[in-house]
C-alpha cells in the first residue's frame, strides 16, 4: 500500500515535470528536430519547392558543393571567408579577459559606469550597430577614413571587408564577454591572491597563475559559443557588408542558394556539412578540455 502511494506520487511528479518542460520539447521537436530531419532528407535530392521537382540523387549535392562549376567557387570562398571571420573569437576573448581583469582590480574606479558602457553594444539593435559601423567604414565619407585622412576601401576590398567585420564584431562581442569574465574573476577567492602576495608575486604572475587558470571554465564556454556563433554568421553580411563577395559566409551561401534561388537540396547539403563541422569542432574541444579547471 505504501509502495503504491509512493509510485503514484512519483508518477504525478513526473507528469508535472513533463508539463513544465513540454513547451520546450515541443518547440524543439517542431521547429528544430523535424526541420533538421526534413532538411537532411532534402540534401539527398534536387528538391525545388516551386517547380515541385524532387528526385533522389544520393550524395550528388554534397559532391556538387566541391565540384559544380557554378557553386564550387562560391562555396569554397564562403568557407575561407567564414574561417577568416572566426578570428574575431580569439581576439574578442583576449581583449575581454584583459578588460575584465583591469576592471576587476580594486584600484579601478568607476567600475559600474564602465560596465554599463562596455555592455551597451550587447543591448543595442544589431541592425543599428551594423548600419552605424557601415557608415564609419565608408570609403568616401566614413569617419575612420576621415580620421586617418585616407581612402581605404574597407567595404569594397575582399580582405579589408573581413578586417572591418572583425573589428566590428570584436567591439560588439566584448560587452557580454567582459561581464562573464568579471563574474568568473569575482568567484576567485581573495586567499589565493593574498598568499601569492606574501610570496612576493607580482601582478603578471598572479594573472597568469591564478586568474587565468581559474577562469578557464568561462574561457571554455566563450570559445565554444564564440566559434559556433562565428560559423553561423549571416546578418553582418547582409546589413554591414551589403552582401559584398569577400564577406559572404557559409550561412549566406545557404540562404542565397537555398531560399534565394530555390535550390533547397544544395542548401540542405551545405547546412549539414556546416552542422557536422560545428559538431566535430565542439566534440574535439570537449575531448581536449583537460586544461579547463573546474574546481578552485
Amino acid at each position: 500500500m505504501e509502495k503504491h502511494k509512493d509510485g503514484k506520487l512519483v508518477r504525478r511528479e513526473k507528469i508535472t515535470a513533463l508539463a513544465f518542460v513540454s513547451p520546450l520539447i515541443i518547440g524543439f521537436v517542431v521547429f528544430t528536430l523535424i526541420c533538421m530531419i526534413v532538411s537532411f532528407a532534402w540534401s539527398f535530392t534536387n528538391f525545388n519547392p516551386i517547380s515541385g521537382r524532387m528526385k533522389f540523387d544520393g550524395l550528388e549535392r554534397y559532391v556538387e558543393l566541391f565540384t559544380h562549376p557554378t557553386y564550387k567557387k562560391a562555396f569554397l570562398d564562403s568557407i575561407v571567408n567564414t574561417l577568416f571571420l572566426l578570428l574575431s573569437t580569439p581576439l574578442c576573448i583576449v581583449i575581454s579577459v584583459l578588460i575584465a581583469s583591469l576592471m576587476n582590480s580594486k584600484k579601478f574606479k568607476g567600475k559600474t559606469f564602465f560596465r554599463v558602457v562596455i555592455y551597451l553594444p550587447a543591448v543595442t539593435s544589431v541592425v543599428a550597430v551594423n548600419y552605424i559601423w557601415r557608415y564609419m567604414f565608408e570609403e568616401n565619407y566614413g569617419l575612420i577614413n576621415a580620421f586617418f585622412h585616407a581612402n581605404i576601401p574597407w567595404l569594397t576590398d575582399n580582405t579589408l571587408i573581413k578586417v572591418a567585420m572583425i573589428i566590428k564584431n570584436v567591439w560588439g562581442g566584448i560587452g557580454t564577454q567582459v561581464i562573464l569574465f568579471m563574474a568568473g574573476m569575482q568567484n576567485i577567492s581573495d586567499e589565493y591572491y593574498e598568499a601569492a602576495e606574501l610570496d612576493g608575486a607580482g601582478a603578471a604572475y598572479k594573472f597568469f597563475h591564478i586568474t587565468l587558470p581559474l577562469v578557464t571554465p568561462v574561457l571554455f564556454y566563450t570559445i565554444i559559443t564564440g566559434l559556433i556563433g562565428g560559423f553561423q554568421l549571416y546578418a553582418d553580411v547582409e546589413l554591414f557588408a551589403g552582401g559584398q563577395y569577400g564577406s559572404r559566409t557559409i550561412v549566406h551561401f545557404i540562404r542565397n542558394y537555398g531560399v534565394g534561388q530555390n535550390l533547397y537540396g544544395l542548401a540542405s547539403a551545405a547546412s549539414f556539412l556546416l552542422a557536422a563541422v560545428i559538431m566535430l569542432i565542439t566534440a574535439l574541444q570537449f575531448k581536449f578540455s583537460k586544461w579547463v579547471q573546474y574546481t578552485d
Partner: peptide, 19 residues
Amino acid sequence: LSLVLGATMLAGCGGTGGS
C-alpha cells in the same frame, strides 16, 4: 524519426516533371 525521414524522402518523389 525514421517515419518522418521516410515520409519526407518519399513525398514528392516522382515529381520530376512540370505540371
